[in-house]
């Protein structure tokens, strides 16, 4: 049986350390901060990142340099037969497109998965891929299964401020005027390839309710029902660890029996939405991943 390696990028929220534990490879995303390049989780910690972001530094995300990607793949292929490469959503970055181009030179040994995932649901794809390897699938089959499953997830994020979204030009000018006087907490959604406005809340409680209702509807209508059989819940945050834990407790009460993991949101998302954000995501469990 072919020996298969999994590669993802740090957008998945998987740290270098967690990557080692899972037995996968995590490509660090580069950041340009005041025109100096840093690598997530290598030369840039979460704390450093937020302190720079809040000081008003110019933070720009970038895609991994093709040379670095190639170097990583080449080193992996010394010990492995195939690679499943799971980059961040092609709708949000061109990482996927460049990786796909590079992969052409590897004669099918490297399978780049274009499944529009980001953050906690990208992490879920990595875990799904590990299960698929365990089930004896090859790299090309894993790519096909994960891509067929791409829309079976959704993410809702409540922001503390619109400042960073405005700064990064990620929302339309009309929406950007929002909240100049009133304290408004926008709730955004990520469905595959797009970051979109979903609703607006006046209070944290209201924002949480909006997200919980939306997730609940998605589970019922899109993911086959609210049960641990069908779905997995995720909570992610930017500098809101305590609130995330509290939300986790609330969700466990509302959706008993469903596994929930809480994690920090990856920095490439954080730099667009800023500190103070709270997110709930849901992904449908792969049929093969059931056991």
């Amino acid at each position: 049986m072919a020996k298969i390696a999994i590669v993802t990028d740090s957008n998945s929220g998987i740290t270098q350390k967690q990557g080692e534990e899972l037995g996968i490879f995590v490509l660090p995303m580069p950041f340009m901060i005041n025109e100096v390049t840093f690598f997530e989780d290598i030369s840039l910690s979460q704390e450093e990142f937020y302190s720079k972001l809040k000081s008003g530094a110019d933070v720009v995300t970038s895609q991994p340099a093709p040379a670095n990607v190639k170097k990583l793949w080449d080193s992996i292929l010394i010990n492995y037969d195939e690679i499943v490469h799971i980059p961040m959503s092609s709708g949000l970055s061109s990482s996927c497109e460049s990786a796909s181009l590079l992969a052409k030179d590897y004669g099918g040994k490297v399978q780049v998965v274009d499944n529009l995932r980001i953050s906690v649901v990208q992490e879920q794809s990595v875990r799904d891929a590990l299960q698929l390897i365990g089930a004896g699938k090859n790299a090309a089959q894993i790519k096909e299964i994960l891509e067929a499953d791409k829309y079976n997830c959704s993410i809702y994020i409540m922001l503390d401020t619109l400042y960073y979204l405005k700064k990064g030009g990620r929302i339309t000018p009309a929406a950007a005027v929002l909240g100049t006087v009133l304290k408004i907490k926008p709730v955004l959604q990520i469905q595959g390839d797009k970051l979109d406005a979903f609703a607006k809340a006046r209070t944290v409680k209201q924002g949480k309710n909006i997200m919980i209702n939306a997730i609940s509807l998605d589970m019922q209508n899109r993911f086959g029902g609210i049960s641990d059989e069908n779905v997995r819940l995720h909570i992610a945050h930017t500098e809101r660890a305590a609130e995330a834990e509290q939300l986790k407790a609330e969700l466990s009460g509302i959706f008993p029996g469903i596994a929930i993991n809480a994690d920090r949101l990856s920095l490439s998302v954080a730099c667009h939405i800023g500190p103070g954000a709270l997110a709930i995501a849901c992904s449908k469990k792969l049929a093969v991943a059931k056991n």
């Binding site: 009309a174 005027v177 909240g179 006087v181 009133l182």
Partner: peptide
């Protein structure tokens, strides 16, 4: 003036 600004700010 304040109410006007709120409405304008909301689009």
């Amino acid at each position: 003036a304040g109410i006007n600004e709120i409405f304008t700010g909301l689009g």
